[in-house]
Computed example of a mutant assay.
Amino acid sequence: MREGEKRAADMRRHAAGFVARVASARLPLDYSVASLRVVDFLIDGLRKGGADRGRVDTVLFGLGAYVGEVLARRAGAEWVDLDEAQRAYFGQGVGVRMPDGRVWNPLGKVVNRYEVGAEESLQTFYLTLPGRRSRACAAL
């Protein structure tokens, strides 16, 4: 792992830090599946604001960490450090592994929402995500 790369062990802390920073804006980021709609809305606002990608990278990273943490808390995923092939494919050093073993890239999904738009909804991503644990288990 290169210096400056994000590590799976740090991602929960990054998500919590992001939520703490935006708490003053009274955003309902409570790690619920419904809060992913808020994330979609926030990213749409960044897009409409016309800021270039470099100016919003820190916010996109925070939102990606948050989305990954929703997957961890609600779908049974766990943060993982990606291997070399996965890093090359996803363009990220960390991702989440679902209970069925599939690996996903929430950081990249947030960037896709920013770059592509509404068809890359993060709430829809969660709701159609294969490999998450059953609803009964998620309530525990």
Results as ranks from 00 to 15, higher is better:
Met1Asp: 14
Arg2Val: 13
Gly4Ala: 12
Lys6Ile: 05
Arg7Asn: 14
Asp10Asn: 15
Asp10Ser: 14
Met11Phe: 02
Arg13Cys: 10
Arg13Ser: 10
His14Met: 06
His14Asn: 00
His14Pro: 03
Ala15Phe: 02
Ala15Ile: 03
Ala16Tyr: 01
Gly17Arg: 02
Val22Pro: 00
Ser24Asn: 07
Ala25Pro: 04
Arg26Glu: 13
Arg26Met: 11
Leu27Ala: 01
Leu27Cys: 03
Leu29Asp: 06
Leu29Cys: 03
Tyr31Ile: 01
Tyr31Lys: 00
Val33Asn: 04
Val38Cys: 09
Asp44Met: 09
Gly45Arg: 15
Lys48Asn: 07
Lys48Gln: 07
Gly50Asn: 02
Arg53Gln: 13
Gly54Ser: 15
Gly54Arg: 14
Arg55Pro: 05
Asp57Leu: 15
Asp57Arg: 15
Leu60Cys: 11
Gly62Asn: 01
Leu63Phe: 09
Ala65His: 02
Tyr66Asp: 01
Val67Met: 00
Val67Arg: 03
Val67Thr: 01
Glu69Gly: 05
Glu69Gln: 07
Leu71Thr: 02
Arg74Thr: 04
Arg74Gln: 10
Ala75Asn: 00
Ala75Asp: 01
Glu78Thr: 15
Val80Phe: 08
Glu84Thr: 13
Glu84Arg: 14
Ala85Asn: 12
Tyr89Trp: 12
Gly93Leu: 10
Gly93Thr: 14
Gly95Glu: 03
Met98Leu: 08
Gly101Gln: 01
Gly101Lys: 06
Trp104Val: 05
Asn105Tyr: 01
Pro106Glu: 07
Leu107Gln: 03
Gly108Pro: 09
Lys109Ser: 09
Lys109Thr: 10
Tyr114Met: 09
Tyr114Gly: 12
Ala118Asp: 12
Glu120Val: 02
Leu122Gly: 05
Gln123Glu: 13
Leu127Thr: 09
Pro130Tyr: 00
Gly131His: 07
Arg133Tyr: 06
Ser134Gln: 04
Ser134Asp: 11
Arg135Met: 07
Ala139Met: 14
